[in-house]
Amino acid sequence: MHLAYPAVLAALLFSVGLYGVLARRNAILVLMSVELMLNAVNLNLVAFDVWLRDTLHAGQALTLFVIVVAAAEIGIGLAIVLLVYRNRGSSDVDRLTDLAEHGPHDPHDPQGEGDGPSAPEEKAEAAA
C-alpha cells in the first residue's frame, strides 16, 4: 500500500482538528477536536511502524500510550470545563478572557477561578 495514503489522510485529519480547536466556541467541542488531532498523529505512528517493520514496535507502543494519555487528558479536561462552567455559568472559550490586558469583562472577578481560563490554553497548546 502506498504510504502517501495514510500520511495524507492523517495530515487532513489533523488540519480538520486544528480548525475545530481554533473555531469552536464550546470548550467540550474544542476537546473533541483535540482528540481528532491526536488520532491523526496515531494514524501516522501506526502507518510508519508498519512501513518500517520495526522490531520493537515503537510506533504501536507509542500509539497505545497516546491513547492512554488522551483518555487521562479528556478526563481532566472535562473536569476543568465542568468546574469553569460551575463558576462562570458558561464554558465558552472566547469568554474566558480574564488574562486580557483590558478584558471586556470584569478583569478581577473575586469569584474567579484562576486556573479556569488558562487550563484550556495549556491543553490546546499541548495538542498543537
Binding site: A7, V8, F14, S15, Y19, L22, A23, R24, D94
Partner: peptide, 25 residues
Amino acid sequence: ADSGNRIAALAVAVAAAGTLVWVVV
C-alpha cells in the same frame, strides 16, 4: 457554536493542510 475566530481558523487550517500534504506527498 462557532466563535468569531472562524475565518482566521479556516485560513490557518487550510494553510496547515496544504503545507503538510505538500510536504508528505
